Simulated scan of single mutants.
Amino acid sequence: AKLAELRGQGEGPVIQIAEGPVLAYKAGSKKQPAVAPEDPRVPQLRAKLGVSDNPDDTRYDAKVAEAVRKFQQSAELKPTGVLDDRTVKAINSPKRDKQIDTVIVNMERWRWLPRQLGAASLGNAYVILN
Rank of each mutant, 00 (worst) to 15 (best):
A1M: 14
A4H: 08
E5A: 15
E5H: 15
E5G: 13
E5Q: 15
G10T: 04
P13M: 11
P13K: 12
I15R: 01
I15K: 01
I17N: 08
G20C: 09
A24E: 04
A27L: 08
G28M: 09
S29G: 12
V35C: 05
A36W: 00
E38N: 05
D39T: 13
P40S: 04
P43G: 05
K48C: 10
S52E: 13
N54M: 00
D56N: 12
D57K: 13
R59S: 05
R59G: 03
Y60G: 07
D61H: 02
A62F: 11
V64I: 06
K70Q: 12
K70N: 11
Q72K: 08
S74P: 01
L77N: 01
V82D: 01
V82L: 01
D84V: 10
T87M: 00
N92W: 05
S93Q: 04
P94D: 15
R96H: 14
R96N: 14
D97R: 13
Q99H: 10
I104T: 02
V105M: 09
V105P: 00
E108T: 12
E108Q: 11
R111K: 09
R115F: 11
Q116D: 03
A119N: 14
G123L: 11
I128F: 12
L129R: 10
L129Q: 08
N130T: 15
